[in-house]
């Protein structure tokens, strides 16, 4: 987003045709965008917005750059950066704590989920979610479930494997960093694990209709839950290297 030419400094209305919020005003709202671009005069435009009392209440950036950071300080607009702005939706209520560089999404609940990929001699297990589960019915996924109170993520992963596959002899081979994504009023934070198992004999429970052992390359033939390809890619790359 460029403030010079991108925002009308008299009323705070967004003019930039590239911006999804064209026609809306930044006045009195918390403005979230990836990063600033364009002329350094943009810092003065932010100051003009402040003088005209149509400045945003706060700014959230994925990464700060000099033009917006300078403008925010000149205009005394609280600003935080290093935020995954894909988790924020227009019209969310957001609390910004610029002193700590943190934000809180007030109407959004974060839910922690584990997903485990089981591997046996180069093939991985995928499961087709049944019509009885709460989300993503009919999609293929790993062994997944909510993290319950008083258990660690790894304990949750092992419990779900036992419940959903009946496999007992599992060996933890890798994990990758948690990924979060927004879905309606929830932020799902997925904790991925990779386990090697000694057997391909799986007993599925009510949560799944079907299961398959496949080579990772075959995954594109299946309709999966969102982000599943990336989870597998990350896990396998990490353990190979």
């Amino acid at each position: 987003m460029s403030f010079l030419g991108g925002v009308d400094s008299s009323n705070g209305v967004i003019l930039d045709p590239e911006c999804a919020l064209i026609g809306e005003s930044v006045r009195g709202r918390i403005l979230s965008f990836p990063f600033g671009i364009g002329s350094t005069v943009g810092s003065y435009v932010m100051y003009q917005l402040k003088l005209n009392k149509v400045a945003p209440k706060a700014i959230i950036n994925r990464s700060a750059e000099p033009i917006v950071a300078t403008g925010a300080i000149m205009s005394e607009i609280p600003m935080v950066d290093d935020i995954d702005i894909s988790l924020i939706s227009t019209d969310d209520r957001v609390a910004v704590n610029a002193a700590d560089g943190a934000i809180e999404l007030l109407d959004v609940t974060e839910r922690h989920v584990v997903t485990s990929i089981l591997r046996n001699r180069g093939k991985i297990l995928i499961l087709k979610r049944s019509n009885k589960v709460g989300s993503y019915r009919g999609s293929w996924a790993g062994v997944s479930g909510f993290v319950e109170k008083n258990e660690t993520y790894e304990e949750a992963a092992r419990r779900e494997i036992a419940e959903e596959t009946g496999l007992g002899d599992v060996h933890l081979s890798g994990r990758s960093s948690a990924r979060s994504f927004r879905d309606d009023d929830n932020v799902w934070t997925v904790h991925p694990y990779l386990f090697d198992v000694s057997s391909r004999t799986v007993t599925i429970d009510w949560e799944h209709d079907d299961c398959a052992w496949i080579a990772p390359g075959e995954l594109k033939k299946y309709s999966t839950v969102p982000g599943f390809h990336a989870v597998i890619k990350n896990l396998l790359e990490q353990t190979n290297s």
């Binding site: 400094s9 005069v41 003065y44 435009v45 100051y47 003009q48 003088l51 000149m74």
Partner: peptide, 10 residues
Amino acid sequence: KTIGDAGIQW
């Protein structure tokens, strides 16, 4: 020309 009224006030 480059900094305008906002620049003056700043």
